[in-house]
């Protein structure tokens, strides 16, 4: 446990990501052929005032209620110093 939560938000499998599709098209137009698919997402860093289990539970709540839209997005939390 530490005082920084790093949060990754990504679209669920199967949800179309028009931005990812457009970026991949740009990559192909640039002449690179090594990329077969792009998925875009969001990234947040939360500085925590404490590093106890209660803080972690709050981070989980915040992700569920605010940072991610559970209808279309999944999230993953990592903790680091």
């Amino acid at each position: 446990m530490s005082k920084r939560a790093i949060i990754y938000i990504r679209l669920k499998e199967g949800v179309l990501d028009p931005q990812g599709v457009t970026i991949q098209r740009a990559i192909l137009n640039m002449g690179y052929d090594a990329v077969s698919s792009v998925r875009s997402g969001k990234f947040f860093e939360l500085e925590l005032s404490s590093d106890n289990a209660q803080a972690a539970s709050q981070v989980d709540d915040i992700c569920r209620k605010l940072l991610a839209n559970p209808v279309i997005e999944d999230f993953r939390v990592e903790y680091s110093q």
Binding site: P18, N69, V71, I72
Partner: peptide, 17 residues
């Protein structure tokens, strides 16, 4: 309304961006 859960579903970026 969809964000607050009063209506179901989500409104995403237009497919043509």
């Amino acid at each position: 309304l969809v964000e607050s859960g009063l209506l179901p579903g989500a409104l995403m970026r237009n497919d043509h961006l």
